[in-house]
């Protein structure tokens, strides 16, 4: 197991390094001089050169890339062009919004989607099943930011139960922060819950048809016990795969939904960075998002081993 873990982590690190290289190269061919762009038309060649030196842009590309890689480990990611503050600090600050948002959304999606999928499977081909699958089709089709807008319309503007945007920070305790995160998390979670419900349903239906379910029933287990104790654990294997794949959609979803709810998270930071042509910030942010998606995929591989003994290396 340890060998497997080590190998998987090594693979992850290699993938991350490749991603970093690709991102760096892509942004390197970007036309335009960020220093010139920041200083505007009145800048003299001397002030531009000074700023280039300050930002380290006068160094050769290879050295800048290596410095960035080292910075990813130490946290020293350079200065944001636009904000003139360290990128590491900016990202750390916004992390406290996006991470809880993503985790909350993931929990909501699993908490809604998996039980509904199990319910549909255990009543397969009944009216309940048809209704649940119809609703999940709708859930798949509705973009998360429209869910967000509708929630704001109904629960904030209409009923006044929730703030329509903004984030009070964690200093006032988890209550107000979670209150501000719950609608955006739900908006992110619903389309994902729809996917999970559909996958769970077909996985459970497939598992319920397996011979070991008959063995379990022959032991004296009820249908429900056989479902929970035997079918579900097997059905979770494909569900976890999808959960991992969905996580990358969730991350990009945060970019959009943070916009809807004016949350000061990584996603909004990314959009602002793109608007401000803030390359230092963009490259680290994009790598963070891609890296998070890759890390979750690695976690899924490891979770496989826990869920499915056949995948465990001997």
């Amino acid at each position: 197991m340890l060998r497997f873990l080590a190998a998987r982590i090594a693979m992850l690190v290699a993938a991350l390094a490749t991603a970093a290289l690709v991102i760096f190269l892509v942004l390197e061919i970007l036309p335009g001089d960020p220093a010139a762009a920041m200083l505007g038309v009145s800048a003299t060649p001397e002030t531009i050169a000074a700023l280039r030196a300050e930002l380290g842009l006068d160094q050769p590309a290879a050295r800048r890339f290596l410095r960035w890689l080292a910075g990813l480990v130490t946290g020293d990611l350079g200065l944001s062009y636009a904000y003139r503050v360290p990128v590491g600090g900016l990202i750390g600050e916004r992390f406290g919004v996006t991470l809880p948002l993503a985790v909350l959304a993931m929990l909501l999606a699993a908490g809604i989607g998996i039980p509904l999928g199990v319910a549909a499977a255990s009543r397969a081909n009944t009216r309940l099943d048809a209704v649940l699958m119809g609703v999940s089709q709708l859930g798949l089709a509705i973009p998360n930011f429209w869910f967000g807008l509708l929630f704001v319309l109904i629960f904030s503007i209409g009923l006044g139960w929730f703030p329509s945007g903004g984030f009070p920070g964690w200093s006032a305790g988890p209550g107000p922060a979670l209150h501000a995160l719950i609608l955006p998390a739900l908006a992110l979670a619903l389309p994902m819950a729809a996917v999970l419900a559909r996958i769970t349903r077909s996985a459970v239906i497939e598992a319920l048809g397996e011979d070991y379910i008959l063995t379990a029933r022959a032991k004296g287990l009820s249908r429900a016990e056989a479902l929970v104790r035997h079918a579900l654990r097997n059905a979770l294997i494909p569900v976890v795969t999808i959960l991992g794949l969905q996580f990358s959609f969730l991350l990009t979803g945060t970019v959009v939904v943070e916009g809807v709810f004016a949350l000061p998270g990584l996603g909004r930071l990314l959009i602002q960075a793109i608007g401000g042509h803030d390359l230092m910030l963009i490259r680290s942010l994009v790598l963070m998002f891609a890296g998070a998606a890759m890390a979750v995929n690695a976690l899924v591989d490891i979770a496989y081993g826990l869920l499915d003994p056949r995948m465990r290396p001997a």
């Binding site: 070991y212 379990a216 022959a218 097997n234 499915d308």
Partner: peptide
């Protein structure tokens, strides 16, 4: 008690 035909599939693979 009952014993089934297919030893490959009659046992739950994850237990």
């Amino acid at each position: 008690g009952m014993v089934f035909q297919e030893p490959m599939t009659a046992l739950n693979p994850v237990m």
